[in-house]
Structure formats: structure tokens, C-alpha cells
Design a binder for these strands. Structure first.
Lengths: 148, 148
DNA sequence: CCGTATCCAACTAGATACTG
DNA sequence: CAGTATCTAGTTGGATACGG
């Protein structure tokens, strides 16, 4: 796991030991950008999550996500994931054609991260909601104060 | 850390114990979407990373990221982060004005996640690069085979 | 069934000019 | 210095029609 160009230090007196990400090439942000470019789009995470539980065919995958992903977007998404080696695509040359999707090992290793993300989100959702309310409140008041 | 509606199970014979994310409301993906909506844009992560090391003023922040974030985008980004309670904004009513940005506790707790993301990315970057090359190779060959 | 192609709407982001 | 406003370009995503 030799991280290479990532290091952790703890700033002054903040106490708890928050990680400070430092890298030789700050523009790359140590590669965080890479993962985010992969998962930051609208559907990739959904696909990974659904595939985490097993092999799925195209239509079935579409049905599960069915908050309503279009054929087009599902195709684009699985293609990208396949290209990145996160998803394996198996074509059975039957009639009608049958295509199965599953996570690769690499893809499975990602599910741990996704899990962390989910946990953090759930744990802090109330905090964020509160922060937003407070912010919007202040914004509204500032608006009122500025107007007139 | 009672996760609420996130659960881990291990599928059939895959072996290693990859997490399977399940939730009551699959459309929400257990809230993964939430974090990603926050970090998935082009600049948020950069800001969080830079702020992870300490307090920064607007201009300084812009300079550090300066792969080239515009004033506009930096403003929008820090505002969103502020609204979500990840960043604290302190205005010193001096002349010229001076505004300082720093991570809140909530923001700092996120840096751990970002770190994980970075680590994963760095660890698997070669795998992904290889997968891409292989994929593009295959695609090129398929192209050649189809043509003519 | 699985996918591609096309067209269109919405959003994100950059450049620039201007204000307090 | 910090921020807003405007205008424009690029990208993403959805609907639909069609092809293997």
C-alpha cells in the first residue's frame, strides 16, 4: 500500500488529528480527482451499488436503478466502468442477445469506499440539514436587511 | 455510528467479504448521492483539500488551487460548502476587506474520506490505466474488424 | 434484448467587466 | 481584496427513433 505521494500530518492545536492531504503535485489532489471523475457523474455509483450484490443483465440493472435511468445513460455508464476495469461485461451470443454485468475485483474493492461515503453521509445528514437551514435563515435575514 | 438503513452482507462464494450496500430506499443509495453531489463538482474537493491544512484567505485559496479556478467558481464553491456546514467563513471588516476560510469540524471529518478516496485511487491507478489500455486496444481491433 | 445515433434541454464553468 | 453580474462555451443527461 505504499502511498507514494500522499502524507498525513496533524495541524497545530486542532487536536483530534485530522488528516492533511499533501502531495507533490497539488493540481492532481493526490488522485482524488480520478475517483471522483469516475464516480462523480449521475449514475456510476448506482450501478456499482446494484452490481455489488451480484450479476445483473442490462434490463434488470436498468429496472433496479429505475429511479429512471435511460438506456443511453446506462450504456454510457457501464461502458465507462468497463473501460476502467471496474465492471466486467459478458455477452452471450444468444437470440435474443443476453449481456451480463458484474463487478470485477477492482470494482468490489470500490464498494468499501462507497460504503464509507454512505456511512458518512448518513451520520452527518442531520448536521448538514441544520447547517443549510441556518445558512438560508441568515441569508433571508440579510436580504431583508439590505432591501428597502 | 448506528448506520440506520445501511447493512453489510457477503454474497455467495465471492470469498473476501465485499460489502453489499442495501437500504430501504434504493433510490437514495443510502445517501451516497448526497456526498457525491457535494464533492462531485469540479472544485469542491480541491477547496476541502487546501483548507485541510489550515485557514486561508480568498485570494490565497485561489492562488493555491490555481490550476486556475476563477473568482466566480471559487465563490460558488465556498458558498456551497459554507451552506452545507463544511466550511466556515469569517469576514474581518477591515480595509481592504479580509475574508478567511477554514474547515468546520464537519469539514475536517470529511478529509478522512477524501484521504481514503485518494489512497484507493493511487493504489489502483495502474490497474485502471491497464484496463483502459486493454479496452481501447480491443475497441480499436473491433473497429478494424468491422470496417471494410 | 441490447445497443447506437440524433436532437434538445439543463447545468456547469470560464472570461470579462464592474462594485464596495 | 472580495465579490457580483452577464454573457458564452462545453458538458451532461433525457427523449426518441432506429439498427443488430
Amino acid at each position: 500500500m505504499s502511498a507514494g505521494h500522499t502524507a498525513i500530518t496533524t495541524p497545530g492545536g486542532t487536536g483530534a488529528g485530522e488528516p492533511v492531504i499533501s502531495c507533490e503535485t497539488p493540481q492532481d489532489e493526490c488522485g482524488v480527482r480520478d475517483v471522483l471523475d469516475r464516480l462523480g457523474d449521475k449514475w456510476s455509483v448506482y450501478v456499482v451499488v446494484e452490481l455489488a450484490s451480484g450479476v445483473l443483465r442490462f434490463k434488470e440493472l436498468q429496472r433496479r436503478i429505475h429511479g429512471g435511468i435511460s438506456q443511453r445513460m446506462l450504456t454510457l455508464t457501464v461502458r465507462r466502468l468497463e473501460r476502467d476495469g471496474l465492471v466486467k461485461r459478458t455477452v452471450h451470443p444468444t437470440i435474443p442477445p443476453q449481456v451480463e454485468y458484474e463487478l470485477t475485483e477492482l470494482g468490489h474493492s470500490l464498494t468499501h469506499l462507497v460504503k464509507s461515503l454512505a456511512d458518512w453521509s448518513i451520520a452527518h445528514r442531520p448536521d448538514i440539514a441544520a447547517a443549510r437551514e441556518a445558512y438560508d435563515e441568515r441569508a433571508a435575514q440579510a436580504e431583508a436587511g439590505t432591501a428597502g
